[in-house]
Write a protein that binds this DNA or RNA. Structure first.
Lengths: 108, 108
DNA sequence: TGATTATGCAACCATGAGGTTGCATGTCAA
DNA sequence: TTGACATGCAACCTCATGGTTGCATAATCA
């Protein structure tokens, strides 16, 4: 079910707080929930929910160490979305721009 | 305001119907609202709302021809998101994977 | 053991997103 | 001019989302 997976990834990336969490993990991998909460202006439970969504989208992997939950960034889903959806718009970017330009000129 | 713009793009891409609309425009640029409605399982107004969101995110450009509204794909915002957000996760993809592996091994 | 710390779980609430329907407006064609 | 067609605008509904609070559980430390 590629489509479903992509849906989860796109949906997960739609929220700025979640992108911020990914940025934090990119800067420093393996942070605990407590660590990640420090710079978030919301309750621990809210952050926990965001991380759960990132986990379901497989953007974040977790690992228990005692009572601490460590969070690791997994860039693979981002890569997949890039590869099978974004890339196609990339390759034809200039073509489409020129195409748009000529079409607009033709109409006016 | 780069952040706001990116928010709009990410939010716009989060909905499967809107990604489908972009796919349709990628396959055939310059379609009217009516054209785009044909293969969508929702009312014309719903499609119109989706297109408005894509327009606000600058993913779609429009042009009036008489009573018809033509829709053109603009891949630039996708490229920008790719360049200033996705790319950084791409470049360090393998590094992070190996990093995760070593960290997990270290703990167990 | 007992207190503290890190996290999970569940109920709840407000808001916004996605959808609908009904009507208004402007353009084309007979 | 008149009717049909393409679209916009606005009100409304439902439900998912993002947030909260309160309590439960498990691990650590004195």
């Amino acid at each position: 079910m590629k489509g479903r997976d992509d849906d989860r990834v796109f949906a997960a990336l739609a929220d700025p707080s979640r992108r911020l969490l990914l940025d934090r993990l990119f800067a420093e991998n393996g942070l605990t929930l407590g660590n990640l909460c420090e710079r978030m202006k919301m309750s621990r439970q809210a952050v926990s929910k965001h991380l759960a969504i990132l986990e379901r989208a497989r953007l974040v992997t977790t690992h228990w160490r005692g009572r601490e939950k460590l969070h690791y960034l997994n860039p693979v889903p981002i890569h997949q979305v890039q590869a099978r959806w974004i890339a196609k718009f990339e390759t034809d970017r200039l073509d489409l721009l020129s195409d748009l330009k000529t079409r607009l000129e033709r109409k006016s």
